[in-house]
Structures are given as structure tokens and as C-alpha cells.
């Protein structure tokens, strides 16, 4: 059985009248990718920053790599052992990729070979390019390289692919998967369901500061994925309402209608209905996803932008 890298118990964070994190507890095992999934403002970054000792917890205990983060002496030691990709990562515009990495590297007693690191992240062609001249995807890769400079045991990635185009996202996913193969423990926050589903060994779904579900991704999908989902795209409003009346489980998201289907009989009924309406071509059937899990647990949809719908 693998040992625990992070242990969080009864964590609470209050800003004035706002309770950003509401009594959450979880553990992260060494060598796993753990995703904290939730909409914007759910408390993901606050939780992450408490783990990184950037913020103080109002209540509760947080232990990272064996260090209690409320102790300042521990924090100094801990910072040598983790790597961080902050949300909306930025580096110094006028410095090159290599110079920016060198700045981070000089803050540690020991660091990896920067040329090798640049090669690993496929940044060799841009090593001498200024940060301000990089594309979003390359900037994010430099951010991940910065998180690896000290050869950390644990890596915190805060929304690592937000704002990236699909290709750049896939590139970043590949890098994260490679890190897992190297045995790194990764704590990832994201509002992208697919990201958590593809990368994470375990997922905690956080909503309004509370963890509403936690477990292995596969288990969550089986338990709360709600079977397959029929998606009807570009449906006129009147028909959408008619479908909702006929299939009460249906939810309307913009011009789409989504219905979780548990039984094959219901799928057949749906196809026959749509054929009658001449809408059979707008039908898609998807397998269970974290999107369904989120919907099942919170009753609301999570948009691509991380907002609730």
C-alpha cells in the first residue's frame, strides 16, 4: 500500500463573511494524480494555496510530505520539496525561457540540469526566446518546467490548461502523464471534466467549498455517472420543452437537451420519438462522464469556462 503524501483534515478557510472552504478532508497517495474538480469559486485554489503554505487555514490540519504547513520552519523545508504551476502562470516578460528557468533554479540549493529539462518539455527551439514572445501553450510548458526545476517529490498544478487551445491542452496532458510515469505525486485543480477524467487516478469534486464526492475516477463514474447520456443538439425551444415533459430527467443547456439513459428500452423510445419529429440526426449518445457525476451530485451543469449553468 502506498504511503500518504498529503493529509487534510477538517480544513476551513473563511474570508470575512465568506466561507471559501467548508470543513474538507482528503488524502493524496504518493505517486498518484489527484484532481480537485469544481467550478470557479468552489474553493479549489484556496485549498491548493493552503497546502502550499501561501495562505493560512482558519481551522483544520494540513500535512504535506510529512510537514505540518502551519509551522513556518516546516514551510521552509517543504518549499524545497514541492514544485508549483500557479494559476495564470506568468514569468518575466523580458527574460528568455532559459533565463526564467535559471531564476527559479537559483532559488534552490540543488536543481536539475536546465538544458535537459528544456529538452524534456520540448522547449529547446524556444530556449532563447523571451517569455513575452511565447504562445499560451509554450508559456504553460515553461511553467511546468519551472515546477520541475528542483526535482520535486510533489507537484501542484493549478488549472494547468485553462485558456489553452485543444492541441496545447493535449501537449500539457502528455507532459503530466509523463510525470506520473516518473512517480511524481501530482495535485491538480481543474474545472475541465475531461482533464480530470483522463489524467486523475482519484478525483474530489468540490462545490461551494465542500467536497461532494471523492474516490477513484473509475469508481465515481460507475457510481454516479448515471449511465449513458443522450445529447440532442440545436433543438428548437418548443420541442426542447416537449422533450422535457416527456422525459422529466432531461436538462436543457442552451440549445442542447441532455438526458441520462439507464436502460436500453429508453434509448429505443427516444430514437423513435426523434425520428417522428425528424430530429434523429441531432442525436448523440455518450458514455458516463464526470460531467454526469457532477450533474448528479450538484444538480447543475459545469460549463467549459468553469461556470455553473
Amino acid at each position: 500500500m502506498s504511503s500518504v503524501a498529503v493529509k487534510v483534515e477538517g480544513l476551513v478557510k473563511i474570508y470575512g463573511a465568506i466561507q471559501a472552504v467548508n470543513n474538507i478532508s482528503f488524502e493524496i497517495n504518493e505517486g498518484e494524480i489527484f484532481a480537485l474538480l469544481g467550478p470557479n469559486g468552489a474553493g479549489k485554489t484556496t485549498t491548493l494555496e493552503i497546502l502550499q503554505s501561501l495562505r493560512k487555514a482558519t481551522k483544520g490540519s494540513v500535512c504535506v510530505l510529512g510537514y505540518d504547513v502551519s509551522n513556518n520552519k516546516n514551510v521552509r523545508k517543504l518549499k524545497k520539496e514541492f514544485g508549483v504551476l500557479p494559476q495564470d502562470f506568468n514569468a518575466i516578460d523580458k527574460l528568455t525561457v532559459k533565463e526564467n528557468l535559471s531564476v527559479i533554479a537559483k532559488m534552490y540549493d540543488k536543481h536539475v540540469n536546465l538544458d535537459k529539462l528544456i529538452l524534456t518539455l520540448d522547449l529547446e527551439d524556444k530556449a532563447n526566446s523571451k517569455f513575452e514572445d511565447l504562445s499560451g501553450g509554450l508559456k504553460q510548458r515553461l511553467g511546468i518546467a519551472g515546477a520541475l526545476v528542483n526535482d520535486p517529490k510533489m507537484i501542484f498544478l493549478d488549472e494547468p490548461t485553462t485558456g489553452l487551445d485543444p492541441r496545447a491542452r493535449r501537449d500539457v496532458w502528455r507532459v503530466i502523464e509523463d510525470l506520473k510515469k516518473e512517480g511524481k505525486t501530482i495535485f491538480l485543480t481543474t474545472h475541465y471534466m475531461d482533464e480530470a477524467e483522463i489524467l486523475a487516478d482519484r478525483v474530489a469534486i468540490i462545490h461551494k467549498g465542500k467536497i461532494v464526492a471523492i474516490g477513484e475516477t473509475k469508481t465515481l463514474l460507475e457510481k454516479n455517472g448515471g449511465g449513458r447520456t443522450v445529447i440532442l443538439e440545436d433543438i428548437p425551444e418548443s420541442i426542447a420543452k416537449e422533450i422535457k415533459n416527456r422525459f422529466p430527467k432531461a436538462t436543457i443547456v442552451g440549445t442542447d437537451v441532455r438526458i441520462q439513459i439507464l436502460k436500453l428500452k429508453e434509448v429505443n423510445e427516444m430514437i423513435s420519438y426523434l425520428t417522428k419529429k425528424g430530429l434523429e440526426q441531432s442525436l448523440q449518445i455518450t458514455r458516463p462522464s464526470l460531467e454526469n457525476v457532477f450533474l448528479e451530485l450538484t444538480g447543475v451543469h459545469l460549463t467549459e469556462e468553469g461556470e455553473l449553468a
Binding site: 500557479p86 514569468a91 527559479i104 532559488m107
Partner: peptide, 14 residues
């Protein structure tokens, strides 16, 4: 504003 101080504060730099 650009988070560079935050990034540096997450290294052993005091």
C-alpha cells in the same frame, strides 16, 4: 499583479 512574486514566494526565496 502578474503572479511573479507569488511564484517566487513558493520557492525557498524568503
Amino acid at each position: 499583479k502578474r503572479g511573479i512574486i507569488k511564484r517566487l514566494s513558493l520557492t525557498p526565496l524568503s
